[in-house]
Amino acid sequence: MKATRRQPSSLAALALKWVGIILLLSYLLDVLVEPLPYQFLDLGWRIRVLTQLVDKGIIALMGLAMLFAGDWIDATTTNAAPPHNKLLDLRFWALILSSILGFIFFVLAPLHIIDVNRASTQQLARIDQQTQQAETQLETQLGSENFQQQIEQRKEALRQQIGTLLENEEQLNEALANEQLPPEIKAVLEESKTNPRVLDEFLEEQAQALPAQLETQILEQRQNLEKQTRLTSWKSSLRVGLSSWLLAAGYIVIGWTGLRGMLGGSPRVSRQAPMG
């Protein structure tokens, strides 16, 4: 009857051990295969690989937890003694691996933060270069004859559109009642009824203000890109850095505590079968 009662526990212990081993091997396989081809000098490659290692780091931690949970169940339900030679004890190598992973994740956090800040600096430099190129192109475009012709064409098209409205009182009233129409356009339409020169003055002002508007758009785009770059860098540093240190703490606690107990001679949970 005792053997019958132990059987489910032994099966659970075996299942937990094997699942833990599979999770550990799966993570180690990802560590070796996912980074291929190795490009240690490539900044983008390092950031991508370190992020993946940290994001999947919980897998190996769960594997260790299942492995030791299975060993604990096995220790309370069987009479098997642990190997006297520590090199033959699976727990010993699991604790060594946990300690190594803890050290790696502890080091990965600052390395990732440094790489992300470096990548952010490079991206900001590229944004600045692109902005300067856009401003140079704008200056060249503004001084070209083709651009001036386009301005005149736009002015003539607007003049015709507004002139058509002024000739049709019904359409003019509909336009003035349109809430989406800019206030300055409404003012021009109103004044144009009595002063036709207002339209020409308005079109000339718009043409003169166009270069400043285009330059403002370039600067706004630059600010948005810089803001997005800094935000992405900050989020990556915070998320991956903190996650890496949390994983390091978990691995180090498991590894160092277990090794200290094993090598220091702390008594292990008795392998004797429970009474009754």
Rank of each mutant, 00 (worst) to 15 (best):
L25K: 07
A175L: 05
A273I: 13
A75H: 01
D128L: 10
L203F: 13
D115M: 11
I252V: 14
G44P: 04
K86I: 11
N168L: 05
Q122G: 00
H112W: 08
P37T: 00
W245N: 07
L16T: 11
A15H: 13
E191T: 15
W45E: 04
L214A: 03
I151M: 12
N168A: 04
I21F: 02
E201T: 15
A80E: 12
P211D: 08
R46P: 02
L24C: 07
I151N: 10
G264N: 04
M1G: 10
L138H: 00
N117W: 06
I104L: 09
Q7M: 08
L158V: 05
Q223P: 00
F202M: 09
V198I: 12
R5L: 14
A207T: 07
F147P: 02
H112P: 00
G63C: 01
N195H: 09
P8D: 03
Y38R: 03
M62R: 08
L29N: 03
W256C: 07
A65N: 00
Q141A: 03
E205D: 08
T78Q: 05
P274Q: 12
F68R: 02
N224M: 07
Q149T: 14
K227G: 05
R230T: 08
R154P: 09
V33Y: 02
S237R: 09
P183N: 09
F202D: 02
L158A: 10
G250M: 15
G276C: 09
D42W: 10
Q206F: 08
E152Q: 14
Q132C: 10
D89T: 06
Q149S: 15
G57F: 12
P267L: 13
I104P: 04
F40R: 08
E139F: 00
A209F: 06
D74W: 01
I127E: 02
F68C: 01
S266A: 12
G241Y: 08
K186A: 03
G63T: 04
